[in-house]
Design a protein around this nucleic acid. Sequence first.
DNA 1: CGGGCCTTTGAACACGTTCAACCCATGTGG
DNA 2: CCACATGGGTTGAACGTGTTCAAAGGCCCG
Lengths: 251, 251
Amino acid sequence: MNAINFAELKALQSQPTPKTSCANCSMHALCLPMGLEPSDVEKLDQVIGRRRRVKRDEFLYKRNDPFRNLYAIRFGHVKTYHVNAAGDAQITGFQMAGDLLGMDAISGAHHCDAVALEDSEVCEIPFARLEGLFSEVPALLRHFHRTMSQEIMREQNVMLLLGNMRAEQRFAVFLVNLASRYAMRGYASTCLQLRMSREEIGNYLGLTIESISRLLSRFKSLGLLQVDKREIRLLDLAQLKSLAAGMDSSN
Amino acid sequence: MNAINFAELKALQSQPTPKTSCANCSMHALCLPMGLEPSDVEKLDQVIGRRRRVKRDEFLYKRNDPFRNLYAIRFGHVKTYHVNAAGDAQITGFQMAGDLLGMDAISGAHHCDAVALEDSEVCEIPFARLEGLFSEVPALLRHFHRTMSQEIMREQNVMLLLGNMRAEQRFAVFLVNLASRYAMRGYASTCLQLRMSREEIGNYLGLTIESISRLLSRFKSLGLLQVDKREIRLLDLAQLKSLAAGMDSSN
DNA sequence: CGGGCCTTTGAACACGTTCAACCCATGTGG
DNA sequence: CCACATGGGTTGAACGTGTTCAAAGGCCCG
């Protein structure tokens, strides 16, 4: 796979900062405008609100905020999480550039919190205006439905992970999945710069921080990866994939 | 809450079998036509395909079936589940009358299996025709988006359940949730006729059949419920709710 | 150099699983 | 009619995975 780094590409070909628009956003091939005609992309651009910077640890939205916008990440990383009555959190997803957030809130208000894992920038997409565009641009509506559908699939996969995988397999799935998402975005997929802490990974995977630490040590000693703080170099992706698929493990 | 049994009501008021349509379906207040004008309900009726009977243990759809239809349950119960590479299943949901199935497949093909838990009947909703109706009936599109959004929320709640609840709390959540869904449908909410086996409950909750059995015994001995095979009578809903919320448990 | 934060590692523990036996209701064949 | 098999459910005992608790290490920034 010829890994092209879209972000670098963009930086190379355009010294003068381009107008912020979908057409020249490095994520247009993954994000909402995916597959649209240029004229339709322009209409989408009209609809999209301001670009918004979110600093590390700042909220993108909070539980019970009224639903007004969807958010598309331009760059950076975000986590979404639920807090239960007892006060402990469950992280429901890590989102990166090109991902769409907030679809769980369409029925009324936001039911989870969204916080930036690093300084990030998002496109605010006023949902009322987007709805107005749906009748005009059927391809956009179709793509929107596919996106929601994929979000449902993603969550079902997490249910699978939490419901019947052991710790080792969960962590392998996490790593392989992260690698493939970076690959789709043209980033090096064997050298992950984790944006989240061990604790956040553990929370997402239904494990403790200690378990994550032990798994990293085990995988390291098995020669599957190298660890240096939050940089993880995947050395044996094939083996990791077979662990993620539930094969062998201890033979 | 004045529990009206819609199914019985319908049976009483119409000895001659009425034409099968959304307008006189007992689930119209919960299902796709929810909140639509009568004229729009009629349009929806035009779009909906045949009603289809599914016997107990028969497939409604299978993994890799091409996506053509959504399904609304008229009566009966269905389970959806994923099968992983190793061959074991994870049940991702139990659906009942008024529920909509198949939204995870919009992006292409079905990714899970759907099987009837008892003899059931569903409305086949050809998605292409439904899409055609969206531009004509904006209220339908809005409701469809809310429905997908709610499905995302439901799955996030399962992630919460599987990710950071102990067995006791999981099972309490399961019972309370089931009771509330029956209540919404006008059925007695304190006397549950389970349509699924202990094994299926356990699978859904990430537990074993033995754990479910033990939990039932424990709850019984605590005076929270009575059990007779698959009939469960909830005796202390308040206490069950507080267990489900993560309160006390052992004091 | 000190303090704070994140991480790693070790040891004891606990929750839920696994394995096994048994119960009970239902259905089937001799 | 009984004998027997089958499938779902319950209960007990031993086990194991991952947690909890605790201590120590590494790193950053003041």
